[in-house]
Write a protein that binds this DNA or RNA. Structure first.
Lengths: 135, 135
DNA sequence: CTGCATGCAAAATATTTGCAACAGC
DNA sequence: GCTGTTGCAAATATTTTGCATGCAG
């Protein structure tokens, strides 16, 4: 039985095709906006409404199956929690997104925790600047 | 003569009350969304339209007089470029925003530059996580 | 059966654009 | 006066909400 089914059942919620499809799409796409998830889901199940995508992403986030980051503009980008964590380096000039080993931030995370009691969510970080090509 | 006037004149653009008011408001407010800037400007100049705020913020950003960061949700927050730089620590639970000395990221910035040629924009960074009270 | 989930339409937000009137230089 | 600017309204884009129908358990 899938993890999704169990998590849902534990809360008295239901396993629906839409919920499976949305989770699959997020996992398959890696990074995706609600819009993109919708497009991917609709390929397999034509009638699914964008509203359901939003509601399902919110639910999956509550269940800690996915998270989202804000890259560049308001566009929220969802991805699988179990996917290998990575930091996003976003170029403000060409908008390219590089990924970075999260260990790079371990030192900073430790420092923030000690100095401020602030527990940084490493997988939720996006750093902005200029990439090598644009400088 | 103000810096704003010079920058505008160099580009063949005009100094208008609206532009002065928007820049003043951003400087006075420290952090502010377009909405908040609008509210502040309207106190002194009733008729100014929200559209003009958006257009002016975009212009001021091109002139490198202001920048913006994305705290929490899509809400862009504008602030004076010359203001003392600071990092934002955003709590995902209570949404409180702490400020942090940018020097904290100097090590990371250096590392990214050397490893990736990526020139991080320190003033543009927001880090997410849980603050001391919420952990 | 019962209540959660979905689709649809409409509302609420946020931001952008076309265009005519206006104003800085 | 010429051309950049603004205000207004409308168009877009994005996300949320109300409600009746539908379906998982």
């Amino acid at each position: 039985m899938s993890e999704l089914a169990n998590l849902l059942r534990d809360r008295g919620l239901r396993l629906t095709p839409q919920r499976q499809l949305v989770l699959d799409a997020v996992r398959r796409l890696g990074h995706a906006t609600p819009e993109q998830v919708h497009a991917a889901v609709v390929e397999h199940a034509a009638g699914v409404n964008i509203t359901t995508i939003y509601r399902t992403l919110e639910l999956l986030e509550e269940l800690d199956l996915v998270t989202h980051v804000h890259l560049s503009h308001g566009a929220p980008t969802y991805h699988d929690v179990n996917e290998e964590q990575h930091i996003h380096l976003v170029c403000r000039s060409c908008n390219a997104v590089q990924e970075l080993d999260p260990a790079t931030l371990d030192g900073l995370a430790k420092q923030l925790l000690e100095q401020r009691g602030f527990q940084m969510d490493i997988s939720h970080v996006a750093l902005f600047g200029l990439c090598g090509r644009c400088t």
